[in-house]
Amino acid sequence: MVVDDHPIWRDGVARDLAERGFDVVATAGDAASAVRIARAVRPDVVLMDLNLGESTGVEATTMITGSLTGTRVLVLSASGEHDDVLEAVKAGASGYLVKSASAEELVEAVNRTAAGDAVFTAGLAGLVLGEYRRMAATPDEDKPQLTDRETEVLRLVAKGLTARQIANRLVISHRTVENHVQSTLRKLQLHNRVELARYAIEHGLDVEPEGT
């Protein structure tokens, strides 16, 4: 499923994916219909643009990953939207690819997302590293922390090394590298949910139970 408010881009990406054997089950141009359609068709992967006019892709990501366990969100967005990308990843997106990526990179990223792997660009690794360090500087007690190994792996990703190069350099398996990357994301997302729940309780908001 492809979500983008710009029809030229949306249809182009959908065609690219269809040509390469993917089954594009739906497209959407705004956050509200993206959530509605995703709940109806339950796609494996949602390609999400973050800049959806009035509404944001971050909200749509939160709602989709919160209510559909089998659906993974891959953010496909412009390179400049640092804060939004970080927020979307915290909200449950399993990866981020810039729109300037090549068709091959896109295909590989969609495949990996469908397989449950995290898709990390160097840019996203830099953002995630920055976020952990920002949290480390706050007095909050149950904030998530990176292990030394995870920090090491993230830094190498941010410096443009591929998973295979990192595995070689650190003398660990390719799978272990993937697991480290995955775990940095999971901790961040878990913390984000705890924070949201705490916020809701503190402010007396009723959280609508969502089917996870």
């Binding site: 640092h82 804060d83 970080l86 160097a122 840019g123 690794a125 976020e131 443009g160």
Partner: peptide, 16 residues
């Protein structure tokens, strides 16, 4: 730093 980005140069920074 972000202005130095080109098709061959990727610049990664924190969000803050």
């Amino acid at each position: 730093l972000q202005l130095l980005a080109t098709p061959r140069v990727q610049v990664s920074t924190p969000a803050t």
